[in-house]
Write a protein that binds this DNA or RNA. Structure first.
Lengths: 345, 345
DNA sequence: GCTTATAATGAAAGCGCTTACACAAAAAAG
DNA sequence: CTTTTTTGTGTAAGCGCTTTCATTATAAGC
């Protein structure tokens, strides 16, 4: 009953066998006679015994536990990644623990220590857009960690990071998004979000410019506004852009870094009485759960984040050293419409 | 350099001391001479040594890892709880792992085994509204788990569950919410969400009815609609209610189980051209990050979910057996307004 | 029936720590 | 200076498993 902490010894003596035999039954090894197996099974049942994964880990050098580092779980984008990763991990018998981004900071009292001491079997790191000065630091931290455990990256990974990874092809994605809008007759297309100083050729910015070029549209610096990936920042950035331009130069469409930024844009537009999608189309990214409930419902790109998380776990477990790309899907809702004032050139 | 897996023996020999001494330095014990301590420190530094929490756990019978069981991380409500819990855990040197709700199902291939085998130092379980038939099962599962590790509950806990817990006083909260609305002259107040068959006297339903009684308003069954706590369900429930009533009987205000349901209500209203808050006030609960960006911005109750998660961790660590209540805060936004058609009685 | 291959089991040595306990060296007390 | 404390270190016994290796019981081969 209350034998909540029986050990393998207890089971062995209760079943009248050696601990080696119990261990064999536990791990389903073949060479145990059916009779013995049954005896052991019953003893286990009777004592409600569960082997300690701790002790097991000491011997086997494997903990069956994975870690994930995220910037912010409150952002549903990351919650989706986590969910996908956690579920996949679980189906393989792994546990998933969350570590804050600060775990990478090698300053202070080396918090990465916590990661290493845990002897994780693998670590997923979700990398956000990084300012260049931070870039090197993070890279170093990752390289250190890799000496202790396999690491798989998710997100916006600078190409010179030599790590297995799972990500969307942001450049291609944004390029096609621009094409989608130009196809609707939009010619003043803004892009809001991201960091300015950046050298990664696979970023959204690049796709944005490619998209403009594809449509032979000019690149207008005023339409390229940088901000963090939050709703507040998006609101602010949109406010700033609109305020800085005469209304006749306002964009006819806005591509937001993500849905949070898009939400900020929508609010900014609403406050100014700009009709979406009548006067302005808005398109987000990540297809958050709230996208269909915004006003108007937000067109967004479903980046298959759960699948991304799941694939990262698979890479971790299989040890494959691939850099993988996850596809995406444009979810059309009411926030995008053909440009009414499209001038027949 | 590559000595990524030095053991305490390596450090001992490198520093020319015994492993006991290394252990002492590691744990900051007092009785080590400064000279020795320094020698050991340097050896540790040189070999980049981090003690294995696994081995440590075997001896100390403590893993410094906690678990949390949530219905769904994609619901930001739970993401906030998780975040609060994780951060608090971290400050105490604990790791936090996520387990899906299914971990409690004692059917199937007893998944709770995973929890037990991990030898967690504690477990937080977020309990949702449970249908009565499920209630007993969950209770049993929890009681089983408690034999193996401390358990703290969060959320809607039936009062006969004898577990330490952290929760809002839902009844009082909803009662005051009704008062807030009646104070604005609303007299047809609907409540959407939750499960029907329920006997817990501390639920929102109860507060809702108390609130009506306080204002001497009739309890109108048609205004009490049950649905799950999702946006889709909220939309459907609102649609059904509105459709089943002549517009002149439509509620003037609706209290939603949570912000997701409220989002569904807002959408339903929008589709029907019902002006919020002109004709209908809507009030949610949880104050999700998107609440300010809805149209209109949603009045909601901030239930201090991060603090709830943090408190749960504190109870777990301290071993206190309290049932705690977390306070809350009404965040007023544009979705609620005085009832225009308030009849001067 | 006796030898050899095969299957079933146990004894024992770790895995990398913590923690009595023992013991030597240094400090305080007489 | 001894004697008693105090302080600093080392030895060794676990913690609860896995795993090699040796050993015994059983089946197969001739």
């Amino acid at each position: 009953m209350g034998s909540d902490n029986a050990t393998i010894y207890d089971i062995a003596s209760e079943a009248g066998v050696s601990i080696a035999t119990v261990s064999r039954v536990l791990r389903g090894e073949a060479n145990v006679s059916p009779a013995t197996r049954e005896k052991v099974r019953q003893a286990i049942e009777r004592r409600n015994y569960r082997p300690s994964s701790i002790a097991r880990g000491l011997t086997s050098k494997t903990t069956h536990s994975l870690g994930i580092i995220l910037p912010k779980l409150l952002n549903p984008h990351y919650a989706m990644i986590f969910t996908g990763a956690q579920e996949e991990a679980r189906t393989h018998g792994y546990t998933m623990s969350l570590f804050p981004w600060a775990s990478l900071d090698t300053d202070a009292y080396n918090p990465a220590a916590m990661l290493i001491e845990r002897r994780l079997d693998g670590l997923i790191v979700c990398v956000e857009y990084l300012p260049p000065d931070h870039d090197e630091l993070v890279h170093d931290a990752l390289k250190t960690l890799r000496r202790f455990m396999p690491v798989v990256l998710i997100g916006c990974i600078p190409p010179w990071y030599d790590f297995p990874s799972v990500a969307n092809d942001n450049a291609a994605m944004t390029r096609k998004t621009v094409a989608y809008l130009t196809g609707m007759g939009h010619d003043r297309i803004a892009f809001i979000g991201g960091v300015q100083e950046d050298t990664d050729p696979r970023r959204r910015d690049v796709g944005y410019q490619q998209g403009l070029r594809d449509a032979r549209l000019p690149y207008t610096a005023s339409y390229r506004v940088f901000c963090k990936g939050t709703a507040e920042a998006g609101k602010q950035a949109m406010d700033d852009m609109l305020q800085s331009l005469k209304p006749c130069y306002w964009p006819t469409a806005v591509i937001a870094l993500n849905d949070l930024v898009a939400m900020g844009c929508l609010l900014s537009a609403r406050e100014r009485g700009i009709d979406v999608p009548g006067q302005l189309s808005v398109i987000g990214c990540d297809d958050l759960f709230c996208a269909p409930y915004l006003s108007p419902p937000l067109t967004s790109i479903n980046t298959h984040q759960q699948r991304t998380g799941a694939r990262a776990v698979q890479l971790l477990i299989s040890g494959e050293q691939k850099r993988e790309t996850v596809d995406w899907e444009l979810i059309e809702r009411a926030s995008c419409a053909p440009n009414r004032e499209a001038a027949p050139t």
